[in-house]
Amino acid sequence: MNALISLLNMVFDVILAPFGHRFASFDLIVWPVLAGVIALLVYKKVSNQKGIAAAKNGIQVHLLEIVLYRDNLAGVLVATANAMKQNALYLGNNIGPMLVMMPPMTAVLVEIVANYAYSPLPVDATPLLEVKMAEGASVKSMDVTLDLPAGLSVDAGPVATPDGMVAWRLKAETAGDYVVTVHAGTEAQQKGLAFGGEPRKIPVLRTNTWESILYPGEDALPSDSAFETIRTHYSDRDLPYFPDGEGGILLWFFGFSLAAGFALKGPLGVEL
């Protein structure tokens, strides 16, 4: 997993944000559009274009039947059922291409989310650092300790709960990227924290589950780690025109890739 995350970071850290993270709109337009075009070409190659066209056509035929033969109640019900059947066929035809496109598109999306969805923590903030112990971990939550770098101090805590959670409230003296170390027995894991400064890629979560692919800001935890997650909560970054945070990024991505797809499906001869 780490190799994959490293590879993705290596690529995207170079190509994302060529004008810096301040110009979020640039990446939030260029990448969805580019992703849309590439996805369109891939979709054309891997999908059953004839099947999709036939299913769409079938849906339209049965919808028109409902309109044209509306006096025939039984006919309307049959046409409705047939339209739904064609709808299912249409969706079925899209599952294959969806699975093919999912990994690359997810990679692009999560990198954009990591880079643009969150703001660094305000310097005067006292965020929680939350650690969740893995199920069956040999170390108890109350035995977990924390090492802080210079400039970062504990404001409160730790607070351990019986369900395996430990939390510290931290405080930074100045803006900067800090790395804390969490110890459980002989295991030590690091976690980054971003305080103040320019917008940048934010380390939100480290985990030993599949979800780590969605948080490329940091490496995944080892699968045999005593920790399941180490997390800090960040505020959503203000995005122009769309809602903030992950939802906003999704809307940017959805809107622009869809617009690009719609504009280019004709010239590229793709049946969607």
């Binding site: 992703a35 849309g36 996805a39 369109l40 979709y43 999908s47 769409k56 849906i59 049965h62 919808l63 409902i66 409705t80 339209a83 739904m84 709808n87 249409y90 969706l91 035809n93 899209n94 291409p97 969806m98 496109m101 999912m102 598109m105 997810t106 999306l109 999560v110 989310v113 969805a117 969605l214 992950e246 939802g247 990024i249 999704l250 991505f253 959805f254 890739s257 869809l258 690009a260 797809g261 719609f262 499906k265 793709v270 969607l272």
Partner: peptide
């Protein structure tokens, strides 16, 4: 945040939903 994976699937699900609603 990751419910959408490209214009193909986007059109498919949006279009499919619209078709269902229309029907």
């Amino acid at each position: 945040a990751h419910a959408y994976i490209g214009p193909g699937a986007g059109f498919a699900f949006a279009g499919s939903f619209l078709a269902l609603i229309a029907a």
